[in-house]
């Protein structure tokens, strides 16, 4: 480890130091440190407490404080692994790890399943999917009649819900995304490959000798 603690840094990192987080994820130590620069910006945008609350998360996504969004809220809840209403740096790194281009597909499929399992029942249910479609329409210019929405749901569940019990289980979801791989596109952020280039200032704040990691 490097020399003395820099101001404010320990407060953010707690016990989750970059070497430990890198060992648990696809990220290198430098990449974890670069993510810390991003984390600092987001977590101090409303309250500078070293944690990201939902308002800060939505603000970072939309650059707009007032927007209420089902999907952003859902992603936030999944990032908030400890269910404390806030995301700490460890949660942030471990969650973004799922979105790394090198992370196994299985992990991405698992995360996307949880994302769409709105009521946490262990299934993707038709009523939840309808709720998400309505939320999408609410945030876009797109207009669809209820009959058209029901048609889309019929078609989707006919294909995805193999045993036709009205809900999609994990095995059915795996099968469905393997036939529709574009659905996993949102689960990969190519940007994460270049995170050290995006946040070069991590070098000045680094406390870790990369060779020692």
């Amino acid at each position: 480890m490097g020399c003395g603690p820099s101001k404010g840094r320990r407060q953010y990192l707690g016990n989750e130091d970059p070497v430990f987080l890198a060992s648990q994820t696809t990220f290198s130590v430098s990449e974890v440190e670069a993510l810390f620069e991003l984390f600092k910006t987001i977590s101090s945008s409303v309250i500078d407490d070293g944690l990201i609350n939902k308002e800060e998360f939505v603000l970072a996504l939309f650059k707009n404080r007032t927007k209420e969004n089902l999907f952003a809220s859902r992603i936030f809840d999944l990032f908030d692994v400890k269910h404390r209403g806030v995301i700490d740096f460890g949660d942030f790194v471990r969650s973004l790890h799922i979105f790394h281009p090198n992370t196994p597909l299985e992990d991405k499929i698992g995360f996307s399943f949880k994302l769409y399992d709105l009521d946490n029942t262990g299934f993707i249910e038709r009523k939840g999917v309808k709720q998400m479609l309505l939320a999408l329409l609410g945030e876009s210019e797109m207009k669809l009649a209820d009959e058209a929405i029901e048609m889309i749901l019929d078609k989707t569940f006919l294909e995805a819900d193999i045993n036709q019990d009205g809900k999609i289980d994990m095995t059915e979801w795996q099968h469905f995304v393997s036939k529709n791989p574009s659905l996993l596109k949102i689960m990969t952020l190519p940007y994460l490959r270049d995170i050290t280039t995006a946040f070069p200032s991590f070098v000045f704040n680094s406390e870790v000798d990369e060779d020692a990691a």
């Binding site: 987001i42 996504l61 999907f71 992603i75 979105f99 999917v129 574009s182």
Partner: peptide, 25 residues
């Protein structure tokens, strides 16, 4: 045409699911 897409293709279009925005891009 939205009706030609499956529900999840449509849902994927939500800005709230586009985490690229977190990076300020």
């Amino acid at each position: 045409q939205p009706v030609a897409m499956n529900a999840f293709e449509l849902i994927s279009m939500s800005k709230g699911l586009n985490l690229e925005n977190l990076f300020g891009t």
